[in-house]
Design a protein around this nucleic acid. Structure first.
Length: 239
DNA sequence: AGCCCATCCTGTCCGC
DNA sequence: TGCGGACAGGATGGGC
């Protein structure tokens, strides 16, 4: 039996917090139980007799149900310890700004003095906490910005459009309960509805909702990336 | 600084 | 039906 798990006995959940893509459960006795779901992780509240080969952790709750961490690919991360120790973790302590919690001026500042491409920057959790591949592609499409555009080449109006697009996409995906494309489920095992609402991500070969051109799949930052080449022209490549 | 690749691991899908 | 390759909501470390 794992001592760290035993140590959870009788602890009370005081609050649950999200920091970027990390979920922190504050427990009595100054402890934090934290998770990062990565690619296929999910936190589920299930009946005690719920069984599945991919359950990695199981916590018995006083409600009579179990909290489980289910993770097919085992990339998920779990933290546990005193809140000081957990918050000092390399990943958690370096998390950047939540895009929904900053104003446009701050957003502009974070883009200053950057020399790379815009999409890889959006995906950096130490700069913007919480933006993932889907939100990045959907936002860049909405703002009509090619993911390989150099940050320094973006006009003020484009930076403004991107900021607005990020807010729009993040709020919408949260309102729709997240993205279920294959594995992921909400804690009550219902599906998130954002995947049905997406406009470019994983839609290669389909028509752009804005201009009817065919959506393409390219690679940016070693990640599958979906764009409309007409709406999101690449700098230096006039059509 | 920033880009790419491989890696961690399991499952699915597609072409042959 | 089998088999190999590509790809999948992410992060990290090494090489250039």
């Amino acid at each position: 039996m794992d001592k760290r798990i035993l140590d959870l006995q009788n602890r009370k959940v005081l609050k649950i917090e999200r920091r970027g893509k990390a979920i922190l459960i504050y427990l009595s006795g100054n402890k934090i139980l934290g998770f990062h779901q990565r690619m296929t992780g999910k936190l589920l509240i299930v009946p005690r007799d719920f069984r599945d080969k991919h359950i990695r952790l199981r916590f018995r709750l006083s409600s009579g149900k179990d909290l489980i961490f289910h993770d097919v690919r085992k990339f998920g991360v779990r933290w546990y310890g005193s809140s000081e120790k957990v918050l000092k973790d390399k990943y958690l302590s370096k998390l950047g700004k939540d895009p929904l919690k900053i104003n446009f001026k701050k957003f502009q500042e974070l883009l200053q003095e950057r020399h790379g491409m815009i999409k890889p920057l959006l995906l950096r959790q130490d700069v913007f906490a919480g933006i993932g591949n889907i939100v990045a592609d959907e936002s860049l499409w909405k703002a009509r910005i090619h993911p390989r555009r150099k940050i320094a080449s973006l006009k003020l109006s484009e930076v403004g459009n991107l900021f607005k697009a990020l807010h729009y996409v993040l709020k919408k995906s949260i309102r729709l309960g997240g993205t279920t494309m294959r594995d992921w489920l909400r804690p009550d095992r219902s599906e998130g509805q954002y995947y049905k609402a997406r406009l470019v991500y994983q839609r290669a070969g389909e028509k752009c909702q804005r201009c009817s051109a065919i959506i393409k799949r390219i690679k940016v930052a070693s990640r599958g990336t979906f764009i409309c080449e007409t709406c999101q022209p690449e700098a230096g490549k006039p059509k």
